[in-house]
Design a protein around this nucleic acid. Structure first.
Lengths: 194, 194
DNA sequence: CGAAACGTTGACCGTTTTCAATTACAGTGG
DNA sequence: CCACTGTAATTGAAAACGGTCAACGTTTCG
């Protein structure tokens, strides 16, 4: 799972809000992981428009493509004060191209990301806030009855599933009221399972 | 880019609408690519609910995780009559675990998918239909001035970016009217570039 | 201790969805 | 070659849902 940390420890980088880890065109020097904070990846087009490509949060790895590229293809700007771990590509490349086991771990890690992202994208196709939230709970729940621990603020969940926090709280309240879920100390339990 | 076809040719599988490539729990036997049609990946929960995990379309590879799993974790059901290519995992595994170059190609292919998916997800955070469409055009455009070929029906684009086709056509009309884009034989050209 | 973030609910407004209807076009079989 | 079916492209009108703004209590953390 943690393919990259098996290869090397990496060095910690501190960024203040607005500071950059790299810019479009800079020669690649590392792959990153966010320890805390938030990093925004954006691409600037020829015409000056800025496109958001990703927002990396605590735990996320980014710029994995650096392994096989010469230069970065987007900007990485800290959104708030952030702490990153930078894994120099040098060593990474050597290990990946000499040790098939490491390369395979890397590949399978990326494959699992793909699965997660596809599911999140599919989730966004659900228009109704209530149903979307319900699907998110089902996707992230575990156990019987299915339940989700409240280990991240609902505000974050809201951003995750593409709702404003207000809409999320309303959906939560509606589902509770309808008896589809129950919220208790630190967990949300799915009811009405058949 | 086409890591998998460099390893083996795979055998073609024909599925009628409703037929399955595999079901949750089946022992893995292949990784797939859709040649034509559409395959829906779904997971059935203990409580009977069905979760959509992905919809694979022409050109998409799916079940890449089969490489390192014993059984499939979801159902793959053809949505319409479809043609798939099945790449037996046997040989795939051997090659991937013995040849670092192949494993690395696989990893980088997955990494590029991750990049694309992240960008598509980020796109969905744009609430306004007009702006979302504009961002999609910028993301998929090429050349100066930026332009996008009409190689897929707008109906599909609508599904891609999470709008109903009606909303998309309206956004398209609005942008045209406002002079932000121009639609001509087989291309959509972004104007107002600075 | 004070300032941020989080949690929650109300009211209103705007955009998108929905439903409906129409035109255009491509492929199919008689 | 033409009626016939299915998909794509478009536009209108009305309804619904989520966004936005506002306000307030609570928790967290430097």
């Amino acid at each position: 799972m943690d393919w990259i940390e098996e290869i090397e420890r990496g060095r910690t980088v501190h960024l203040e809000a607005g500071e950059t880890a790299f810019r479009q065109g800079n020669p690649v020097y590392a792959v990153f992981r966010v320890k805390s904070g938030r990093v925004r990846l954006t691409r600037t087009l020829e015409n000056g428009a800025t496109l958001a490509l990703h927002t990396a949060r605590a735990g996320d790895t980014f710029a994995e493509a650096a392994v096989s590229a010469d230069a970065y293809h987007c900007d990485a700007v800290a959104d708030v004060r952030s702490e990153l771990v930078a894994f120099p590509i040098q060593h990474l490349r050597e290990r990946l191209s000499s040790d098939p086991q490491t390369a395979l771990s890397f590949a399978m890690f990326m494959a699992s990301q793909v699965r997660t992202l596809r599911a999140r994208l599919e989730l966004r196709n659900i228009r109704s806030a209530k149903e979307r939230l319900l699907a998110w709970l089902e996707l992230n729940g575990a156990g019987v009855p299915l339940s989700v621990p409240t280990d991240q603020p609902w505000t974050e969940v809201a951003a995750d599933i593409g709702l404003t926090r207000e809409a999320l709280y309303r959906a939560l309240a509606d589902l509770s009221r309808a008896g589809a879920i129950r919220r208790e100390n630190g967990r949300t339990i799915l009811l009405r399972e058949q």
